[in-house]
Write a protein that binds this DNA or RNA. Structure first.
Lengths: 143, 143
DNA sequence: TATAAATTTGTAATGATTACAAATATAGAA
DNA sequence: TTCTATATTTGTAATCATTACAAATTTATA
């Protein structure tokens, strides 16, 4: 939830390290994702960037996110039933979505399935623990 | 994945116990869900039932699933990025979706967060562990 | 039976995502 | 540098799941 300061140079290096050519649009999208740390939707990303990049196309945002996902720079969350949500692939963590305000929070230190490679003969490649309920802010405002 | 035999009478009682008036359509939808045990999409449910109920409307399937969800007879899975998937609310379990064939399998005996009520001050009401990878059938057919 | 309420239905609208081809930018060779 | 091929971006149109909504039908009740 906290906004970080990320340099363009860092994002550029990150992309190159993952084999993605660091175009201006790609740097912008990934930088936004890292800075906001907010699990944004495609629409949120687009609306925030189009003010800085007036020629930006929604399709470019889709293309970029798909590419970054394939290169495992980011991961696609399926926690929302209405739209795609994205997250940087960093330290493993889980997610909590508030049923009231819709915000998605990072949750650390609950699950540890890191050693889990196979279940019932299925080969496990990714795992996500989704928690839902009422977040602490919404709980407060109920009082 | 196994197909069960469920009597209409059982489904009717189940609906009434949860405070849902057991109309023919509602019984049909829930019976299908219980029988197939397959986490079907709305479209799958509709297509399978419309042969028996030619007048069935897709909207009715949506309405019914929404109602059953509200009454906590079924739960809505957010494991698929493309459509809604549904599951009967029975014994707690997790889900594994195959990236190759798209099938969703029930997984028992991995996670136990049953005592988890609060995380970082957020009130937890539901939780889903989503595993993704390659299922045992698809692994076999790769050889 | 008559009336009101609940349920179902079909169509149209919405909104996210994808397909696709034209336009633009980038990289490499001559 | 210029030319050419390749990669990237863009905008529009198509697709597909879901929702809105009002008419039609069914069910319950008086």
């Amino acid at each position: 939830m906290k906004k970080l300061r990320i340099s363009i140079e860092n994002v550029k290096n990150l992309l190159e390290a993952k084999g993605v050519k660091p175009s201006f649009q790609r740097i912008s999208v990934l930088k936004y994702l890292l800075q906001e740390n907010n699990h944004p939707s495609v629409d949120t990303i687009y609306k925030n960037l189009v003010s800085q990049i007036p020629t930006l196309s929604r399709t470019t945002v889709y293309n970029t996110l798909k590419l970054l996902s394939e290169k495992e720079v980011i991961s696609t969350l399926s926690i929302s039933n209405t739209d795609l949500r994205f997250d940087f692939v960093g330290e493993p963590h889980d997610h909590f979505q508030c049923n009231t305000c819709g915000k998605i929070y990072d949750i650390y230190e609950i699950s540890d399935f890191s050693e889990l490679k196979t279940v019932d003969g299925h080969q496990v490649q990714e795992m996500q623990l989704h928690l839902k309920g009422t977040c602490n802010r919404c709980l407060e405002s109920l009082n």
